[in-house]
Design a protein around this nucleic acid. Structure first.
Length: 713
RNA sequence: GCGAAAGUGGCGGAACUGGUAGACGCGCGAGACUUAGGAUCUCGUGGGCCGCGCCCGUGGGGGUUCGAGUCCCCCCUUUCGCACCA
């Protein structure tokens, strides 16, 4: 519907994107904070986690670095549990749901406090004073509190804020050197799982709250600052990564879980991560690991040293970008009032025209170079203020666009409540799988947030989501560098849009994509031409009604096409129409009008131009698309061609396959609803069957209603 | 490493809840019509003995069943997600 288009770069659209930002800001769902963020050196901007694909920028493919910067975040993590829970009832493809599930990454465990020990004193040194006073703690997150008696050391992420505090003078140089090295890696290098473990000892110790032992504190880059607390208790006996680390640096490995056939002294040649019973764990010995988890967490919690906790892998959505293109973030900074949202009546904040729009290495947004634009008074106190010069992520634009369509022509509201109630949520959404954790996740979050603000009545934007497949060319992924990109215009010029479109639907299952081959266009091209040749000139069409086998075939085709369209099986829908046309043209006979008219209607969604033209030539005033919208075997109202009706359209007889000892020997017409005995008699009456039974006694009859009779002799 | 999906003619792909494997299309072969055709039409087209017919055939091996592309177990291969997430 061309009267309802949206353009996210139009100020009349992004005004409402900014409005949305302000709404969420006022609801406490937006926050500016300093945090480790992904920096793309190619685009000169920060990126959200979802936009880092295998360590590289989603747009340009440059490996991403980590930087510690103040940025705007949407608190999507507040919705982690709901985003996860709702997956159980929305009708989405399993793979997409699983991708979101993995991305949200819920794990249950405990956060445990390990008090930092007084520094072990070398004989000729004094303890530094600052470590005595408070006994600060290192908090770790673990999913295996049951293994705490086996925690023989701690590992901090190199960026962990307590690293300085625990590092001793002797180790200072080594620690600093290691941290520098890690900082120089991009994320691809850092997160490689196959590289050897590295790390250094800080010189500091912590107290294992379960055993009371002093255990060494290390830093290593396999511990990530952005997950959990950025620190782990290492249990080498029961964690593969910790085991590898302990082996390399000769740290103690202790068994605290005994699997089947193990006892407390069974040596560990690799981490044992399976189920089992607690050993070497004091009063908890003998508990199963599941019981152990609960009991140990409770025991530590009583002493204020632990807390059961759910951890998500999902992070808050970093929405600031240092690009030029994008809606300016509608915030004004004021020395007195802080970050003040732009009042709704002042929206949109229009992107200024600039000559030099390219971001640079400095990390400062291009808008920060436009002083006359960013210098504005504070909307609250009127004193000198400064606009936020970052723009918002373009994924924010698309996270709510579906709400805008019905209200696209309204400048007074983002989306009209009445229209929204009428048209949304989206019934069927079809898109690429690559958006599983980008667009689809963001849209769900925004929808939930708007729901909670009372602005819409539903909390899931897309009732049904289906992914489309990827189309490859001659067996290879299309790419500009390979020079095998399909340019539709070239094909449309040669074969027409109808052929091109029909071929795309025909070349494979829609949800799996397929292989685009130039020669393949011949099929649909010939088919559509044959449709034309069969119908034109219309004066020569016969006027008899559809009858006999062809009538059955027509009903079956209407049904199949209808069902296949609904289930996105376009390739078989088209095949069914081809089959039907072949039957109509069988032996070069003249087609009847009643035989071809329904075909034109069925074809309309695939070859609209052809169908429209033929429909007109067949003498119809009414648009084919109005007609097509009413077709369907459960939705036909009137109409002048036969329609499929499961009650009426069935015939009395049906062809049975007759097998003798499992081999097909005959096909016989049999009345519907026949009994097993009657079937047996009918089958035995057949000459061919008699030949194979050859007088032998029938020991068993296998009877599949409406389908098959198998005589076992 | 974890998870998921998929392996069917020369090719893209059909086959509903187990019931004549290869629909439909491409390609190929033969023929017709044509001055000609890369247009159109007709017929043929999984493999083998190439004769009715029979035998063998859905990645490999086993199993369940009267009957398996379809269900179960093991293996192989490919593709796609996630990936040092504690």
């Amino acid at each position: 519907d061309w009267n309802h288009t949206v353009d996210t770069t139009d100020p009349r659209y992004y005004k409402w994107t900014q409005w949305l930002f302000v709404k969420l800001f006022k609801a406490g769902l937006v926050e500016r904070r300093k945090a480790p963020v992904n920096w793309c050196p190619g685009c000169h901007t920060v990126l959200a986690n979802e936009q880092v694909i295998a360590g590289a920028c989603e747009r340009c493919g440059t490996p991403v670095e980590q930087r510690f910067l103040a940025q705007w975040f949407f608190k999507i993590t507040n919705y982690a549990q709901r985003l996860l829970d709702n997956l159980s009832w929305i009708d989405w493809s399993e793979t997409t749901k699983r991708a979101q599930e993995n991305w949200i990454g819920r794990s249950e465990g405990a956060e445990i406090a390990f008090p930092i020990a007084r520094r072990r004193v070398a004989p000729d040194r004094h303890e530094p004073a600052q470590l005595h006073a408070e006994r600060p703690v290192i908090r770790v997150f673990t999913t295996r509190p049951d293994t705490i008696f086996g925690a023989t050391f701690l590992v901090l992420a190199p960026e962990h804020p307590l690293v300085d505090k625990v590092t001793t003078d002797e180790q200072r140089a080594a620690v600093d050197e290691y941290r520098r090295r890690v900082a120089s890696f991009d994320l691809v290098t850092r997160k490689k799982t196959d590289k050897e473990k590295t790390g250094v000892f800080t010189g500091g110790y912590a107290i294992n709250p379960a055993t009371g032992e002093e255990i060494p504190i290390w830093i290593a880059d396999y511990v990530l600052m952005e997950y959990g607390t950025g620190a782990i208790m290492a249990v080498p006996g029961h964690d593969e990564r910790d085991f590898e680390f302990a082996e390399k640096f000769s740290l103690p490995i202790r068994r605290v879980i005994a699997g089947e056939g193990d006892h407390e002294g069974t040596p560990l040649h690799q981490a044992y991560v399976g189920a089992g019973v607690l050993v070497n764990s004091g009063q908890f010995n003998g508990l199963s690991w599941e019981e152990g988890k609960r009991a140990i967490t409770e025991w530590l919690a009583e002493r204020g040293l632990a807390e059961a906790r759910v951890q998500y892998r999902l992070h808050d959505w970093c929405v600031s970008r240092q690009r030029y293109w994008g809606p300016p973030i509608p915030i004004i900074y004021c020395d007195e009032c802080g970050a003040v949202p732009v009042p709704e009546e002042d929206l949109p904040v229009v992107l200024p025209y600039v000559e030099d729009y390219k971001p640079d290495e400095s990390g400062v947004s291009p808008l920060a170079r436009v002083e006359e634009w960013y210098r504005v008074p504070c909307p609250q106190c009127g004193r000198e203020g400064r606009r936020e010069t970052d723009v918002s992520d373009t994924f924010l634009d698309s996270a709510w666009y579906f709400l805008r369509y019905p209200s696209a022509n309204r400048d007074d509201v983002a989306f009209d409540p009445e229209l929204t109630r009428k048209w949304l949520p989206v019934n069927m959404y079809i898109g690429g799988e690559e958006h599983a954790v980008l667009h689809l996740l963001y849209s769900r979050f925004i929808t939930m947030a708007l729901h909670d603000l009372g602005l819409i009545e539903f909390e899931e934007p897309f009732a049904t989501f289906r992914k489309h497949g990827l189309i490859i060319k001659e067996g290879a992924k299309m790419s500009k560098s390979r020079g095998n990109v399909v340019i539709p215009d070239e094909y449309i010029e040669r074969y027409g849009a109808d052929t091109f479109r029909t071929y795309l639907m025909f070349l494979g299952p829609y949800q799996e994509g397929g292989d685009f081959r130039d020669q393949g266009l011949q099929g649909p091209y010939g088919f559509l031409n044959r449709v034309w040749d069969t119908i034109v000139p219309v004066e020569q069409l016969g006027s008899e009604p559809v009858s006999g086998e062809l009538e059955r075939k027509l009903h079956a085709t209407i049904r199949k096409v209808t069902e296949d369209i609904a289930s996105l099986r376009y390739n078989t829908a088209i095949a069914a129409m081809m089959e039907y046309l072949n039957a109509v043209r069988e032996g070069g006979r003249r087609a009847n009008r009643a035989e071809v008219e329904p075909l034109v209607v069925l074809l309309a969604p695939f070859a609209p131009h052809l169908a429209e033209e033929l429909w007109e030539r067949l003498g119809h005033e009414e648009s084919i698309f109005e007609r097509a919208a009413t077709v369907g075997f459960d939705r036909v109202e009137g109409g002048n061609w036969p329609t499929f009706d499961p009650e009426k359209a069935t015939t009395d007889t049906v062809e049975f396959v007759v097998q003798v000892n499992g081999k097909v020997r005959a096909r016989i017409p049999v009345r519907r609803g026949i009994s097993e005995d009657e079937a047996r008699a009918a089958a035995l009456a057949d000459e061919n069957v008699q030949r194979f039974v050859n007088g032998a006694p029938v020991r068993k009859v296998i009877f599949v209603p409406d389908r098959l009779i198998n005589l076992v002799v």
